[in-house]
């Protein structure tokens, strides 16, 4: 399993009701159902991902996150997860609002644009970074809202959200000590666990 998914897997409480936005082939939901008796649904728009979910018995709904979650009731889920989708959304900030409307807590993982390799790429080559976590060329990338570990923390603070936990991951490897010291520089993937502003 991808490192960020492994970490999220550990964070999800037993028996939680989960909504996974952009669930891909359903790997995380399948593991959560198997290991933690989690019940939940994935939203996905990629046909291959949807078929893969259906074949492995993961509940998947063909729905575009950019169309909003107006079909989902307030507080319908314990946890809303979104991995590797934030950067491809039309309005990530609004989606974050929606996630925290339908769920008490959310976990968001996205590629950290401030990762040192990206900085080197841009700094030395003067071109948009292409890497394992950002594999597309600038002209055909679905990633229209790239941000950094620090950017997202700032958005949460601006919205008055509570950051329960924030980590970075490095590909499939265990995080290096440096990424604990300088997460914005050394983390390839940013992972946030956020709850609503206290009302």
């Amino acid at each position: 399993m991808r490192a960020d998914l492994k970490l999220i897997h550990d964070w999800v409480p037993q028996g939680a009701r989960v909504l996974d936005l952009g669930c891909g082939d359903g790997e995380l939901l399948a593991a959560l159902a198997r290991d933690k008796q989690v019940v939940g649904y994935g939203l996905e728009i990629d046909p291959d991902g949807i078929t893969a979910c259906i074949e492995r018995g993961v509940s998947v709904i063909e729905q575009d996150i950019d169309d909003g979650l107006s079909n989902v009731d307030d507080d319908a889920y314990d946890l809303v997860i979104m991995t590797q989708a934030l950067q491809a959304l039309q309005r990530p900030d609004r989606t974050l609002d929606e996630m925290l409307r339908v769920g008490r807590e959310c976990i968001i993982a996205f590629p950290n644009f401030a990762y040192w390799r990206h900085r080197l790429y841009l700094g030395f080559q003067g071109r948009m970074p292409v890497s394992k976590s950002l594999p597309h060329a600038w002209y055909d990338t679905p990633n229209i809202h790239l941000s950094t570990f620090r950017d997202f923390g700032q958005l949460c603070r601006d919205k008055g959200l509570t950051i329960v936990d924030q980590r970075v991951g490095n590909g499939d490897h265990e995080p290096h000590w440096s990424s604990r010291l300088w997460p914005n520089l050394c983390g390839e993937t940013a992972i946030f666990r956020v709850t609503r502003a206290s009302r």
Binding site: I50, I54, V60, I61, E62
Partner: peptide, 16 residues
């Protein structure tokens, strides 16, 4: 239908 099934906690997949 799908929204109602989700609201009722049923296992459901939907493709358009």
């Amino acid at each position: 239908l799908v929204d109602a099934l989700m609201r009722a906690d049923k296992t459901v997949s939907y493709a358009s």
